[in-house]
Computed example of a mutant assay.
Amino acid sequence: MTDSDPDNWPVVAWRRQVSYGESRWAIFDCGMVRFLTRMMLAEFDGCPLGDASLWGRPGAFVSWREQRRRLVAGLDPLTGEPDPYAEMFPISDDD
Rank of each mutant, 00 (worst) to 15 (best):
L49G: 01
V11R: 14
L41P: 01
G74H: 04
R65I: 12
V62N: 06
A52K: 09
E87H: 07
Y20P: 00
L71T: 15
D7W: 12
S63N: 05
A52P: 11
V33A: 12
R16H: 04
G50W: 01
V33Y: 11
P90L: 01
D95C: 15
L54G: 03
F89D: 07
M39S: 02
N8V: 05
E87W: 02
D94Y: 12
D76A: 11
R57Y: 14
D51P: 01
D76K: 12
R65K: 13
E43R: 11
V72N: 08
D5F: 07
Y85N: 14
P10Y: 03
D93T: 02
N8A: 09
F35M: 04
L36E: 02
T79N: 02
L71I: 14
F61I: 02
M88S: 15
S23T: 10
D76W: 04
P10T: 04
G59T: 13
M32R: 14
M1F: 06
R24F: 01
E22Q: 08
V12L: 13
P48G: 05
V72Y: 08
D7L: 14
Q17L: 10
I91N: 06
W14M: 00
P77W: 09
P84S: 09
F35W: 10
D76Y: 12
Q17W: 10
W55Q: 11
L41N: 07
V12F: 12
L78K: 10
S23A: 13
E43V: 04
A42H: 02
R24H: 13
R57I: 14
R70Y: 10
R70C: 11
E66G: 09
D5L: 07
S92Q: 07
R69W: 07
P82G: 08
Q17Y: 11
M88K: 15
P58S: 08
W25E: 04
T37A: 11
M32C: 14
V18T: 10
P84H: 08
D7A: 13
V12A: 13
F28S: 12
E81N: 10
G50L: 02
D45A: 04
G46E: 11
D5T: 05
A52T: 08
P48K: 06
R68L: 09
E22R: 07
C30W: 03
A86T: 00
I91V: 15
L78Q: 10
V62A: 07
D7N: 09
D95Y: 13
D76H: 14
D45W: 00
